[in-house]
Design a binder for these strands. Structure first.
Length: 477
RNA sequence: GGCGCAGUAGCCAAGUGGUAAGGCAAUGGUCUGCAACACCAGUAUGCGCCAGUUCAAAUCUGGCCUGCGCCUCCA
């Protein structure tokens, strides 16, 4: 049952009806991570919402082809006094070679994704693997008159375009140059929005990764990789390009400029941007030093999927404020949700297909309404509260989880972090089992003072107990 | 200075002109010795502010206020 996706398009600043260029195939490109450090949970908010978008489209019977780049070269940094390539900086910090560090953090990134149930795009391309293609495309741009050489570097001439600002609505005369004091003004540029396609004159002396090119030994500018990787793998017509809002200008604006200059026609129809995760001081940022990673959440005892639920409860176009109080709320919510699903007897009754489709349709409506994940979760709660039999409820939960990806029906999921759960050694196990037996006897004898004393004693060993209908259980925290 | 996103209960949040969904927390209750779990109940005369349009506005229009982001590192 195909429904129309209503999706906000940064290009038009409006919610539009989505139409794939080559229905039912959807070609989707995502700006991937710069692999010089761990991703923080704010970065991951974008990837979670892009994951939901991909899965929602597949749920709506599209076939999504998705490509992501890995930026392992060329991004300059400004969080040091005198810039260095980010990769070089990371390598120095970790005493490793640039390529080792890139691989290390790429693996770390996909590890985080796996913990958050973010599906890895089928095509992932490191920028360093496609430098030949960057050089070829830059050559074409020069031949077509869109690029010029100055001061040893190749620049894109933004004045050659009629509508450079389509995406951002900026006006050239209003743009401030060097708004941030750490940015140097480049006197080689003809226009202040021109950007470098190929560097041979690096202001960074210890640039380690270099390639030969017709314009001299150097390295690519930081916009060209996304255009080339996308066009090479997804062709001349892109349906959806994703990224965080901070990429709109200049990165995505420049991608449009160079791609359409190269192709000679419109390139991408829909631009999907995810708002930032903020903390009390504003946007979460690696430059600020301390930042929250998935590992930190795990160490603090949260299952990473609590964070995924936290994001799904909000809307991708709304700024979201992160606090541990808020995450604690969601941890409770997630825990309750899991136990409600776990209590379902999936063998009870047959699946009521009519009702299944009614709820499925409501769930899809929520997603198709500009990815209203918060409303989609409400449909999930409505299912759990409904008078449907357990078999039907379970089937619906399983179905919804194709998009939500909260591991709702996985047997071993817990709201607290499995990584934070300590393993009890055999001695402690024996000790606890003995004490519990003693306590059970005391309770039978209605000697509650003794029973409570034993509970306190176990608590002192970090053991928490729970009396359930099936007997007493315990966990070590 | 310009451009963009947002502002609904303690927190997250739905709502797209017809009289405020849902979740978490807190509160009261039921249940088992007590905890915990589970379940039940009620919880915004109000939707940043001020005008306007309308029989009717959180929803439309105008103005303003506040927060966040971008303007060559960033998701």
């Amino acid at each position: 049952m195909r429904k129309t996706l209503h999706i906000y398009n940064t290009l038009s600043k409006k919610v539009e009806d989505f139409k794939a260029h080559d229905d039912p195939i959807v070609r989707m490109y995502t700006c991937g991570p710069t692999v010089y450090h761990y991703a923080h949970i704010g970065n991951l908010r974008s990837y979670i919402m892009e994951d939901v978008l991909e899965k929602a489209l597949n749920y709506d019977d599209y076939k999504v082809k998705r490509v992501m780049n890995i930026t392992d070269v060329g991004h300059l940094t400004s969080d040091a006094d005198e810039g260095e390539d980010k990769m070089v900086k990371g390598a120095e910090r970790e005493h490793k070679t640039v390529m080792e560090i890139a691989k290390f953090y790429e693996n770390a990134f996909f590890d985080d994704c796996r913990k958050l149930n973010i599906k890895k795009p089928e095509t992932v391309v490191p920028a360093t693997s496609m430098v030949d293609e960057f050089i070829r495309v830059i050559g074409v741009l020069i031949d077509k008159g869109y690029a010029y050489k100055a001061g040893g570097n190749i620049y894109f001439d933004t004045a050659k375009l009629d509508n450079y600002y389509v995406l951002s609505n900026q006006k050239e005369k209003e743009l401030l140059e060097g708004v941030r004091d750490d940015v140097e003004v480049d006197s080689n540029k003809k226009n202040k929005t021109d950007f470098v396609l190929w560097f041979t004159k690096s202001k960074f002396e210890n640039q380690q990764l270099k390639w030969d090119s017709p314009w001299g030994t150097g390295y690519p500018g930081w916009h060209i990789e996304c255009s080339c990787i996308s066009m090479k793998n997804l062709g001349e017509y892109l349906d959806i390009h994703c990224g965080g809002v901070d990429n709109i200008f200049p990165h995505h604006t420049n991608e449009i400029a160079q791609s359409e200059a190269y192709l000679g026609h419109k390139w991408c129809n829909y631009w999907f941007h995810v708002q930032h995760l903020n903390d009390q001081t504003g946007k979460m940022s690696k430059s600020k030093g301390d930042f929250l990673t998935v590992s930190v959440l795990e160490e603090k005892g949260y299952n990473p999927l609590c964070y995924r639920l936290f994001c799904l409860q909000s809307h991708y176009r709304k700024p979201l404020l992160f606090t541990f109080d808020a995450l604690d709320n969601v941890k409770n919510q997630y825990s309750k949700l899991l136990s409600r699903v776990a209590s379902l007897n999936k063998a009870q009754g047959g699946i009521d297909h009519d009702q299944f489709n009614v709820y499925k349709s409501r769930f899809l409506d929520a997603l198709m309404n500009d990815l209203n994940t918060s409303d989609a979760l409400t449909v999930l709660y409505d299912v759990l509260k409904s008078p449907l039999n357990d078999a039907t409820k379970y089937a619906l939960v399983e179905d919804f989880d194709k998009v939500l990806s909260l591991s709702l029906t996985a047997e071993d999921t817990r709201a607290h972090s499995p990584a934070a759960e300590k393993q009890a050694d055999d001695d402690l196990k024996t000790f606890v089992e003995e004490k519990l037996k003693e306590r059970t006897d005391a309770r039978k004898a209605r000697d509650f003072a003794k029973a409570d004393a034993i509970r306190d004693e176990l608590a002192a060993h970090g053991v928490t107990i729970k009396d359930t209908r099936e007997g007493t259980t315990w966990t070590l925290q």
